[in-house]
Design a binder for these strands. Structure first.
Lengths: 252, 252
DNA sequence: CGTTGACCTTGACGCGACGTCAACGTCTCT
DNA sequence: AGAGACGTTGACGTCGCGTCAAGGTCAACG
């Protein structure tokens, strides 16, 4: 038998047969005078077995060991291990499909939803104040906190932020953002800085403030530095002082 | 933020971040004077989104398109396609686990079982006559037929071979194999050749004979040639004549 | 006799999402 | 000043083959 006939018999490609030779799964048969490989029944049988085993999901290394192996004991171990692995894969796929189904049930999925559909909904509630660049930065910060957190933490975070979506809270937030905008070119030592920091700290629900303080400990936290990077000096000072108030308020 | 901080924030490796730059998933941020990349909040947010999408199973190309894409319409298409793909994978894994479970329920799985547990059982029934090399070749041939066939065909094949496992059939087979062994050095024109070929043809169940004739049409079939390759000239002649009788018997 | 076309040979690159050196520069701390 | 933890680019390895590339071999046909 030549390689093509052998391959057709086992239902694989000739490339596969040669690959198996290279990997030691199938021994190299004797050659004819012209260099062609000449196969016998035993090769076909071994190839068929190899194919079955690979279809079960065994790696070529494992197939080689099993087919060469003298102990059927090894095979059982390998199969058990493989089954456990497949079980893990199946669970992972089901989990992914579950999240996909949740996403697809949305009327209009967006990449924001991919981060967290409910957070996206929350951010839409904040639309009225989002025309301010500071509010936009805040929104990014929240979305990122959401993305970085574990699912359980995310739910808690969203619960904490719920109070901020009331009309009164939104109105207060709009005033705060306007006062922040007015500090654009101001001196960091401007007296309005301390007052605004206090008002911002007071505006946040107490437990959300605590969560923020835990997420960004200190003014040298890279997360916090990235947050204030886009702000002017006086505005950044507001953020720093507000953070200090939140951290202090928590420790007391 | 430097690359390590960004990566830790998103829960990926720095290698992954650089890979995403290379693939266009994440834009290259500005550099500091020392050449270090300097990231902002927006980068972190985008990276977090990318991570979520890849965890859902999207390829990096798809992630790039979705994050850059202006149409949420594309995303829905991609997700639907992905879900279908995952469904296929899940079904494939379940099928494999089913076969694995069947294999593992055997008391002592062997590579032969991997080809077909019931065929292995059948071959064990033939043990009494397997000390003959011809019988061994026959067994290989049958196992290979089994391996090459589709599951449905396999069941039919096994049903056809059942009559050969009775004690009387095994006793007859033993005699036939002994007569074949006696022809080892004989002339292909020996009168015993024709007689033995007729007896072999008569020994096989009629429908199994038909199946064999279909599987190996003619004496130039590579399958058949591989089968007789190990036999002496007179023995090969027995096989040829028996095949001819089977083929003729079917056509009539 | 040459040619076509189907087979065979070895060798090498490609895929996908990174992991893992290698060889080197930079920063901080002691 | 040295150590150790960061950063930089570049290139190879993973896994099971698919897919050229650049030929040699063989049977059949005109």
């Amino acid at each position: 038998m030549r390689i093509g006939e052998l391959a057709a018999l086992a239902g694989v490609s000739t490339r596969t047969v040669r690959h198996y030779h290279h990997q030691g799964v199938l021994p190299e048969p004797p050659r004819r005078v012209n260099g062609y490989r000449e196969y016998g029944l035993r090769d076909a049988l071994r190839l068929a077995r190899a194919r079955r085993l690979t279809e079960l999901g065994l790696s070529l290394d494992e197939v080689r060991d099993v087919l060469a192996g003298d102990s059927a004991r090894e095979l059982r171990e390998i199969l058990l291990e493989l089954d456990a692995d497949l079980a893990r894969q199946e669970a992972a796929i089901r989990a992914r499909r579950g999240r996909l189904a949740a996403l697809l049930s949305e009327e209009s999925p967006s990449p924001d939803d991919a981060v967290s559909p409910r957070m996206a909904e929350f951010l839409r509630c904040l639309e009225p104040v989002r025309d301010s660049p500071f509010a936009a930065a805040d929104a990014e910060l929240l979305a990122l906190l959401d993305a970085a957190a574990e699912p359980d933490d995310r739910d808690r975070l969203l619960a904490l932020m719920r109070p901020m979506t009331t009309p009164e809270a939104l109105a207060r937030a709009e005033v705060l953002y306007r006062r922040l905008a007015e500090l654009d070119g101001a001196d960091p030592a401007d007296p309005r800085v301390g007052a605004l920091a206090a008002d911002f700290a007071g505006h946040l629900p107490r437990e959300l403030a605590a969560a923020l303080a835990r997420a960004m400990p200190g003014a040298d936290d890279p997360f916090f530095r990235a947050f204030v990077a886009d702000l002017s000096p006086a505005q950044a000072e507001v953020a720093r002082q507000a953070m200090a108030l939140l951290a202090g308020g928590e420790s007391s």
